[in-house]
Design a binder for these strands. Structure first.
Lengths: 231, 231
DNA sequence: ATGTAATGTGTCAGAATAACACATTTAAAA
DNA sequence: TTTTAAATGTGTTATTCTGACACATTACAT
């Protein structure tokens, strides 16, 4: 039995990969060395295979780009204008991913012709990919204001000032050091490793790691990290 | 030019329609009088047409069920397990909609064999539709705790006790009358119509209407209506 | 040794919240 | 007509949370 329906359509997945280098929030973008739109910039994407679960396809696309498994990602929205892809009718499920910028496989990125681009310098992208990035940024800001997902962008061990710089770059704003520290520590999600950050030049900051068990339990809890972010 | 790719797939849309009758939160479900799974319960759904924008398809499906336009809806998640639909490989974009239960076209609902079912008595649904409802309820609870979307389930004019009953039925909890009232009024989203609810038996409550302009501006603002809802 | 920049900890006034008391309205009962 | 009871509207207060700011500590540079 089949459905009496002929509108079978290509299903694509497009991914906004966020990274943080300690100073700025960055995007992993593709300088296309293939058609269509060769030479232009786009998001990393791929097609769903007929015999492939959707979440498997998402992980495959992320793995082929970064060499990482178990990446944090979130579905954002499905884009489905009739003419969004001039080549052929294609529906695209858009999602964003957060990775530790230092942990991914740089050879794979090079093979895909992918580059880390500062959000502030982002080039024009093909199709509706600009809109996708706008939405992803909005969603990241929304989610990170309420839930402790920022850690996904940092190394295993990190300092509170590093975390603050991350938040400041996400929201393009300045925050009070002391209040931020108090709020973060009050979540009880951070464990003092006993080590200190040897890179910082003056007083070395305490290196924390995430309490992963508490993190899993609290991932949906409200924390209200960004009280100022009320738009 | 075409993509060198053969995995063209059926794309479905499945919708969780919420309604509120003044006492309980309800779902509009289909008692299937067509194949597959005839006789069983399912969500309202449909297929995306080849020449149809995705958002147009969503509105079409909602209109065919309710006779309403400009319905509030939100995309939740795309379901894409290989065997989720035993008939044929089908990807389904799942979304929820909020409607005024008294405003929809009952003849259309009857034509679709749709019935309002109390959430507490919901039957087993076909395919992965149970999972979809669980997720929709979770998302509704999440969203309504922070944003003033509850109004979408009420008539044009409503009282604060009605609104409170709605929230209590969404979260299956009791709330303090006085604190709830204060919190709602502090949003400045409600306009006193000067009228009173003639149905209530004792002291008639003030009928308010939504300040739609402020509502549109504040739809993304955080309000934190459910301080207890911290899971 | 001393200065400086970044980090860690503490303080306090004002705002927001949760718990609770009291007054008002209206229909039904006495 | 008066009384009663249930639901609604408004007010109060102790507690907690937040935002703004001061001060102490660390480690490198001079």
């Amino acid at each position: 039995m089949n459905y009496p329906h002929s509108s079978r359509i290509l299903l694509a997945l497009d991914c906004i990969v966020f990274g943080f280098d300690g100073e700025d929030l960055k995007l992993l973008l593709i300088k296309r060395n293939f058609e269509p739109e060769q030479g232009k910039w786009s998001l990393m994407g791929g097609f769903l295979e007929t015999d492939e679960d959707l979440d498997v396809a998402t992980n495959r696309i992320l793995y082929d780009l970064t060499g990482l498994k178990d990446i944090y990602f979130e579905e954002i929205k499905t884009f489905g204008k009739v003419n969004r892809d001039p080549v052929e009718r294609t529906i695209s499920i858009c999602f964003f991913a957060l990775i530790n910028i230092h942990a991914h496989d740089q050879d794979l990125a090079k093979a895909q012709n992918a580059y880390w681009i500062d959000l502030k310098n982002r080039p024009n992208l093909i199709f509706d990919h600009n809109e996708m990035v706008d939405l992803a940024l909005e969603r990241l800001r929304y989610k990170a204001a309420l839930h402790p997902i920022g850690f996904e962008l940092l190394p295993e061990k990190f300092t509170i000032p590093q975390l603050q710089k991350l938040y400041e770059s996400i929201y393009q704003t300045q925050m009070d050091r002391r209040n931020f520290s108090r709020k973060i520590l009050s979540t009880s999600l951070l464990i003092d490793t006993g080590e200190k950050d040897e890179n910082s030049s003056t007083k070395k900051a305490i290196l924390y790691r995430l309490d992963k068990e508490k993190y899993q339990n609290q991932i949906n809890a409200f924390h209200y990290f960004m009280a100022d972010f009320k738009r």
